[in-house]
Simulated assay, not measured.
Amino acid sequence: MNLEGQHVIVTGAASGIGLGIARQVRAAGAAVTGLDRNPDGAARMAELGAEFVRVDVAEPDALVAAIEDAHARAGRLDGLVNNAGVTIRVPFLELTLGQIEMLWQVNQRSVLVASQAAGRIMAAAGRGAIVNIASNHANATNPGHEAYAATKGAIVAMTRAMAWSLGPNGVRANTLSPGMTQTEIVIEAMKDPANAANFRSWSADNQVNTVDEVGRAAVFLLSDASSALNGSDLVADRAMSSLLGVNDTRRA
């Protein structure tokens, strides 16, 4: 899983899964440009020896410009990881149009826009890999996550089509669907032993993903080690979604 000499853009790179992905991509030898609206990303990317661009992925023109500028500075673009996203849990009958629009703009539209921008560059070069971060909610969700699950399901479906649109030009597109992962919010919640035990119970091995484990899965999909995968969805949830009823929030 060597990415030596390559250049990879990671969105939502300032924290959580995005930071784990950026760290592992750097460890695999690639140059990284991290995109995030959080200004803290500048210091965190600097620690990794990576570049940082502050941008809100919900603003299409700014997102395209950031990708094109990153390509121009690096002189190449070999990979894109569309990680930026938000989630809310709202009872279905209370879900507002504004909340639906916000989730769609950040979670799904940004993936489409960024993939188009990067896809044009990669297709012209005849090589590249796109990894779209979805979620196991695309296949096994629960009440209160209807709009979030819809955006993640859309990412999986869109990526399947992208594989045929970009594949003839040497560009692969796959999704990575993590389950429960130790982001900053989850780590804080797990300080409560009851929460920690509950979260671990959702996985077959009684463990919770680390962001670096998810990052290594992203590196695999970016690398030639996954050359046979195109249009695939790699579910990294420690079997969480394979057992019906393991996380029934109606009983929470």
Rank of each mutant, 00 (worst) to 15 (best):
E146S: 15
E146F: 13
E146G: 15
E146A: 14
A147G: 04
A149I: 02
T151A: 04
T151F: 09
K152N: 06
K152Y: 13
K152T: 07
G153V: 01
G153T: 05
V156N: 06
V156I: 12
A157H: 13
A157F: 08
A157E: 15
A157V: 12
M158R: 06
T159R: 01
A161F: 10
A161R: 09
M162R: 15
M162N: 14
A163K: 00
A163C: 00
W164S: 15
W164P: 01
S165H: 13
S165R: 14
L166H: 14
L166Q: 11
L166G: 03
G167V: 08
G167P: 04
G167F: 07
P168F: 06
N169E: 15
N169L: 09
N169C: 07
G170L: 00
G170N: 04
G170F: 06
R172D: 15
A173N: 15
N174D: 03
N174P: 03
T175A: 08
T175P: 01
L176C: 11
L176K: 06
S177M: 08
S177G: 04
P178A: 02
P178I: 12
G179P: 03
M180P: 09
M180D: 13
M180K: 12
T181K: 03
T181L: 08
Q182C: 05
Q182T: 12
Q182W: 01
T183K: 00
E184A: 08
I185Q: 12
V186K: 00
I187N: 12
I187K: 10
I187F: 03
E188C: 01
M190P: 00
M190K: 00
M190R: 01
K191Y: 02
K191C: 03
D192C: 07
D192P: 00
P193Q: 08
P193R: 11
P193A: 05
P193C: 07
P193M: 10
P193I: 03
A194T: 10
A194N: 05
A194V: 06
N195Q: 14
F199S: 00
R200Q: 09
W202V: 11
S203V: 09
A204G: 05
D205L: 10
D205H: 11
N206S: 09
Q207S: 12
Q207Y: 11
V208S: 02
N209Y: 06
N209I: 04
V211H: 03
D212R: 02
D212H: 07
E213W: 12
E213C: 13
E213Q: 15
G215P: 03
V219Y: 05
V219L: 05
F220A: 08
F220R: 09
F220S: 14
L221C: 13
S223E: 01
D224P: 02
D224R: 15
A225L: 10
A225E: 14
A228V: 14
A228H: 12
A228K: 09
L229D: 08
N230L: 01
G231K: 01
S232K: 06
S232L: 04
S232A: 14
D233G: 04
D233N: 13
D233S: 07
L234A: 01
V235T: 04
V235L: 01
D237M: 03
R238G: 08
R238K: 10
A239K: 06
A239C: 11
A239Q: 05
M240Q: 15
M240E: 13
S241Y: 00
S241Q: 04
S241L: 00
S241R: 00
S242P: 11
L244C: 07
L244E: 09
G245E: 03
V246M: 06
N247I: 05
